[in-house]
Design a binder for these strands. Structure first.
Lengths: 235, 235
DNA sequence: TTAAACAACTTGTAAATACAAGTTATAAAA
DNA sequence: TTTTATAACTTGTATTTACAAGTTGTTTAA
């Protein structure tokens, strides 16, 4: 017997099966007693495995019924955009790179506290403006510490999300983060960039995203025109 | 013995003690065996309670060491408030009930889609205004379907969060949700309630919170004065 | 035909027990 | 004095057993 706990092994098996569609969305998992028999475990052990799946939001247990497969759509914090009436997919999002990634020093007034490592390494800076149906709605400024990401300044970001590149090229995954939101009156620069009518307020977001790389955080400042669209998020 | 499970009772006790500072941050909880003896339970039951605390992020268990109290600022989605400079604890939040819970019909223009069950049951409606350091910052309107929550209109909400009452009295837990955020120009009513200077924009949030009770969702509309504070969230 | 009762499932809660594995302070040996 | 071993803790994993409670289809009685 391996040193991996039994409940963990069952969890991995069931998780894989759910992801691969062996158990379709909305269908029932085998009952706890069936799982006991099939994997030669006792009920507490099986339940431990199922508890983990519940925690992941992969199943939903109902007393007297069974374990229902859920396969959730989880976003990372607030990332997607919804129209005020109906949802607008990310595919309708066109991106302009205002400032291609450059390496520079951290600004003195940088709103987040930096670790020593981040401070020393300097930062990679970029600005983007995003359009929905031809109109600018999203202006974001990103700072990454200059570690783990060699040659990022040479990369093209055309039609590719920053997060996709970080994940695919550098194996950097977002684990979580924190953000601060305010409604503000935009200054002249923002007003011009987002083509705002006067007196139209703007949603302002500061966020810090933690990754699987120790000490590698992504810092973003976002200005969002919420006249015709809203920031949408699941949690 | 009440019909509330033992592990749940212990969970509530420990949770309260952690929140009230009986167990300070970083300190150790009594060991599992001590809790068994103190509350006359067996270890599986005690561990079930501790598991819930781990899930809440209130403790951190270390094998061979014990259960370390964490007391995080981690709320459900966006609920906590941070000062623009430093964090402001929820304890500085005073709540005024503008409209005590009443049972009424759902409004025609209700922004969310309702299930048939929710539609039939009618809704419980309440309004609150929250203050930080004497100034109103938070106006929220809540709609709950009138199921699972008998006699809620008789309850006092003085110094108690709606979520605490739902959890403790009705065993209703928030599992997740979705929300939509915008920056808006407030109308006269909101302006007056939040004592806003003219031209001060407001953060507007619509949220739907899903719970462990099938078909029981909580719908909130929030107006937030982000002049001196920001909405803060972890994920 | 219809409604109530029941049986056979499902998950939920709980006890009693055992041993494995990580941590820490103490006692023994170098 | 310093190092090592040990004992006494801690949480982690797992079995076995029992009954409660919710769901569903079937059988029985009206």
């Amino acid at each position: 017997m391996g040193s991996i706990p039994q409940y963990r092994q069952l969890y991995e098996i069931l998780r894989k099966h759910i992801m691969n569609g062996v158990y379709g969305e909305g269908s029932l998992l085998p009952s706890e007693n069936e799982l006991c028999a099939a994997h030669n475990m006792t009920r507490p052990t099986v339940r431990h495995a199922l508890d983990s799946l519940v925690k992941d939001g992969l199943i939903l247990k109902k007393q007297g019924k069974g374990s229902i497969v859920k396969k959730p759509v989880r976003d990372i914090g607030i990332l997607s955009i919804a129209g005020t009436a109906s949802a607008v997919g990310v595919r309708y999002l066109k991106t302009d790179i205002l400032q291609k990634p450059v390496i520079q020093k951290w600004e003195e007034s940088f709103p987040f506290e930096l670790s020593e490592l981040e401070q020393e390494a300097g930062c990679v800076y970029m600005e983007r403006l995003r359009f929905v149906e031809g109109a600018p709605v999203f202006y974001d400024i990103n700072h990454l510490p200059n570690i783990h990401i060699p040659r990022i300044t040479n990369r093209s970001f055309e039609n590719k999300s920053l997060f996709d590149i970080l994940r695919q090229t550098y194996q950097i995954e977002i684990l979580g983060g924190e953000q601060k939101l305010k409604a503000i009156k935009p200054d002249a620069k923002i007003k011009k960039l987002l083509q705002l009518k006067s007196a139209q307020p703007v949603l302002y977001i500061e966020r810090k995203l933690a990754t699987n790389k120790e000490g590698f955080n992504i810092y973003s400042t976002i200005y969002f025109n919420s006249e015709k669209h809203a920031i949408f998020g699941r949690f």
